[in-house]
Amino acid sequence: MPWLWYVGPFALLVVWFLTGLRGRHEARRDRELARWRALMTPEAARARRDGRKADTGGDGPRPVRTAPASLERMLQDTGGGAVLARYELVPKLAYVAVVGPDAKNGSEYQVVLAKLADAAPRLTVCPLPVVDGRRAPNTGVQFKKDPEFMDQFLVEGPEAKPIGRWLSKRIRDALLDFPDAWLFAQDRAMALAVYGPVDADRMEELVIAADAIFAEHGNEGAPSLLFEGSGDADDEDGSDEDDEDEDGEDDEDGEDDEEAAGAEGAVR
């Protein structure tokens, strides 16, 4: 059949193009991950504090095979997908996962996973959707004393007042500094995600925002996520025996107890 003379070479050309495109994307992702790890070294942290440009040398957070089970479960709340890499920020407590698309999830994203000191109310914070070029009405949990936050973020969850206490002013300000963030919390785990291809600078901003949240609610004294050294080399799977979630209590003295109200949204 003469038409096969044309279809065959064309199909080979398409396969060659798609394979090359995928290879270039993976090479770019690897370069950005290497640059992000360099930005997360102790020297880079000191440079941030001193207002200096960071030296891009050093290895930064070390790769690990897996994170503790409670944090791995949080990946399902953020969208699932094929985990391409995991990096340890604080041993046993905080990790970064780089996730690619699979048959069920079409998004590439990066997420900070961290253990909490106490059980958090179930919540999702996401950028307020834009419809026809305008922000959609905010039908989520209301923060009437913080209109700037409400203009940028939709907060959903079944318990408005505990959510209001948990999302302190410091946490809301950290999210406003990184308006692309999606925050998920449930039981004693949280996830802060950004969707899209890997970008070293944006991943650094993601960890900085997660550090502010972890400082409020993190487990074991909430050590910094920004410049901790790597853990013991023989613990590459990131697991521990005391991984099961424990019940905690909400902070009854939270500053936003009276202002969060209304709109019990379903966490996706």
Rank of each mutant, 00 (worst) to 15 (best):
K144M: 14
K145D: 12
D146L: 05
D146S: 14
D146M: 11
D146Y: 00
P147R: 09
P147L: 05
E148C: 09
M150S: 15
M150F: 05
F153Y: 08
F153H: 04
L154F: 11
V155K: 10
E156G: 10
P158R: 11
P158G: 04
E159Y: 11
P162W: 00
R165I: 00
W166G: 04
W166C: 07
L167G: 06
L167W: 02
S168A: 12
K169G: 09
R172C: 02
D173Q: 11
A174E: 10
L175M: 08
D177P: 06
F178C: 13
P179M: 06
P179R: 00
D180S: 09
A181E: 03
W182H: 05
W182R: 00
L183V: 06
F184H: 15
A185Y: 05
A185M: 03
Q186N: 12
Q186H: 09
R188C: 13
A189F: 01
M190S: 09
M190L: 13
A191G: 13
Y195A: 03
G196H: 06
P197E: 13
A200P: 12
D201E: 14
R202A: 11
M203I: 12
E204L: 15
E205C: 15
E205H: 10
E205A: 12
V207F: 04
V207M: 03
I208D: 10
I208Y: 09
A209G: 08
A209I: 07
D211E: 13
D211Y: 11
